[in-house]
Design a protein around this nucleic acid. Structure first.
Lengths: 220, 220, 220, 220
DNA sequence: AATGAATGAGGGTTCATTCAT
DNA sequence: CATGAATGAACCCTCATTCAT
């Protein structure tokens, strides 16, 4: 969570001797993944270098290779991290027994998907950077689709419950779930590539519209 | 397979006598752009090299730089080509006075967007490869958004006409157009990244569903 | 003397149709050598390209290779041209029976060496560009020294005549000639590299000083 | 031969075990500059390649760029090194309170300028290689003239002292200094380009002649 | 565990040269 | 004779990786 506070302790007792910091493995990995995300967002996946990432993380190149073995691996793990963060967030909401009202749960989902946390250009950039390469890299495809499939199933279940509850007829929950997921992806893309044309506000409004047309009783 | 016809004539009558062919500038440019598309689709934008592209085109590295000055420029022009091809195709259909029936025009649009020509993995790969970099490359953003804006306007106009014709109430044509565009983009993404989960057939069905819910009288 | 007049005839009778000009061999060679001199002066010997030279000459690359076979050869011939032009000018003055007065002949020589024609940055640049490479290129060394030796001999003869005429004692004409030549070369260098510190006027004054100290009766 | 001592230690104790040696930055820089000097002398400034220099230095290309960023910079720093070495040597002698006798100081200067250390073809080659490009490269001009100006001033001061001490009349110290500097440059040039015609011995004799004529009481 | 100097394969680009027109 | 599109070797430079410290 607190990803770059380690710099605070940097001011060593000794003058300003750049000291060798020894830290737990997990912390180092997280520190490097965070730096990688920032770098991808700032410079694009194809321009990211190990130097760049390690400087951003305040570590040495050697350390990155020590913890991740190779650049390829660091990139892969970064994708896995972003993918899991995003999908676990969704899934938690969808399963979320803490929000009994299904309509409200939908609202919460939408807020998560297009709200502050996720739509940060940073995360979106990373997201689409990997999509861009996915066509040519089975590894990326696998990571994304593994995590995607689960989220898709949960969404389908949620939609099915709503259909049942609302007694909506002529609605295929599975088809609708696919459509909704695609819509969200497309809106993310719009926010990233044409931010001038599509505000976050409008994106949310468009997504709500979609849900309202499908589940009028659940969405105001 | 061979969606790039110009490459076909390459196979010379003689064995593999590497002759120095002199050709018009436009042809060479097209030849190189086509090769670039194939390479991006096959290897990913970030792994494309000039060597790779020129070998694919059956030309020498020097020739590529002669006609495009730099790799950056070749990549930029390739994006421009793909973007224009896609959007001009859409626009022609949307304006298309050759299809007077608005519902049928919608169908034609959908067919174009998710049909054979566009959904080829090749073109999609290129498309998202650039999107992936767009966050960090204003030039790419500009090319895409310029061409995008026009298409968005035409779509809005088309939707507005349909709303008028059908007397649909409570429908905001602009919002709907944004949603539809996003949906299509999201479906493309799904076709590219999780082809196992989303067939082209289902993608089309999902998109039709969207339109049917909005314009029930126009879509069967 | 007037070395770049050939460009005048360029304005063709025809509109501005870039016509294929057919010209005598000697004219083409001269045209290309002139262009080479200008390019070396402007960009430095190491940055000169065939493209650059031929564009400057208003000809095509093919033509240059047609007349000179290779870049190396063009460069060599250009050096030979500049070297001969300079040394023949000197020699003509030194032998010059048209100036019977030996003191005046010395003056004329100095004027030629540090006057308008030769001290043009253009010629000097070329001169030293080749000197710079001479250490590593025997061919250049040979061209320069061949032509140099003759001029040195003539200068020695002239100095010897003056010594005889003036009855200067304790003066070694050969040594003095070497010194004078070196002085002139050094002044050229100063004019080229540190034009701020050494004006053409002062250069002449310094050279006259040298001669005056050696031959007080001949130089006022 | 080995005027660059630092290179001597290269021959490792072990056979040709190519070990990865880590060395202080200053040493690496010096090592590369020395190699650059040798390469320029051997092949000419325009033919020097990074490969060539680094092979000569026994290092990898990467290392050269690590310490100098670019070839341009390496070349620039090499010029600066040679220029400073030469001029600082002169200046030390001219200021040199360790040689109280002014005539002897002149002798020492001349010995330095035309003696073993400086007249080595190697250093001269470098010197004139840069002069050759100076016409087209302001950066080179600046480096040389900056360091030159100081030396010129010191020389003028020295000459003025001698004029005063010797009571020489009708001698302009400034003009004489310019002349002497030019003469030395010219002799260096002669030694480089026409070594057959001008021996080091004769060059020294010619320069002494110049000084003797100006300061007969100080030079025997 | 951590560092960063050193490496060198591989990238983009330039440009002398060739040759079909 | 003249042209300039085409070629590809060779350049400079970057950067993932290694390893002595």
């Amino acid at each position: 969570m607190t990803d770059v506070p380690s710099a605070a302790a940097e001011v060593s007792t000794d003058a300003n001797t750049k000291r060798r910091q020894i830290r737990p493995k997990a912390e180092r990995r997280r520190q490097l993944i965070d730096a990688t995300i920032r770098c991808i967002a700032r410079h694009g996946l194809s321009s990211v270098t190990m130097q760049m990432v390690t400087r951003e993380a305040g570590l040495s190149v050697g350390t990155a290779n020590l913890h991740f073995e190779s650049k390829d691996n660091l990139l892969r793990e970064t994708l896995r991290f972003v993918a899991e963060e995003y999908h676990h967030g969704q899934i938690k909401i969808m399963e979320g027994s803490d929000i009994p009202d299904l309509g409200k749960r939908l609202d919460a989902l939408l807020d998560f998907q297009l709200g502050r946390g996720v739509t940060q250009r940073q995360k979106m950039s990373v997201w689409f950077a990997y999509y861009g390469e996915a066509g040519a890299r089975p590894v990326y495809q696998k990571i994304v689709s593994t995590v995607d499939r689960l989220a898709a199933q949960k969404l389908e279940v949620l939609f099915a419950s709503i259909v049942l509850e609302g007694g909506y007829s002529g609605v295929n929950a599975r088809e609708l779930a696919t459509g909704y997921s695609a819509l969200i992806d497309g809106l993310h893309l719009g926010l990233l590539v044409t931010p001038r044309e599509l505000s976050k506000r409008r994106a949310r409004s468009v997504a709500r519209d979609f849900l309202r047309r499908a589940f009028p009783q659940h969405i105001s």
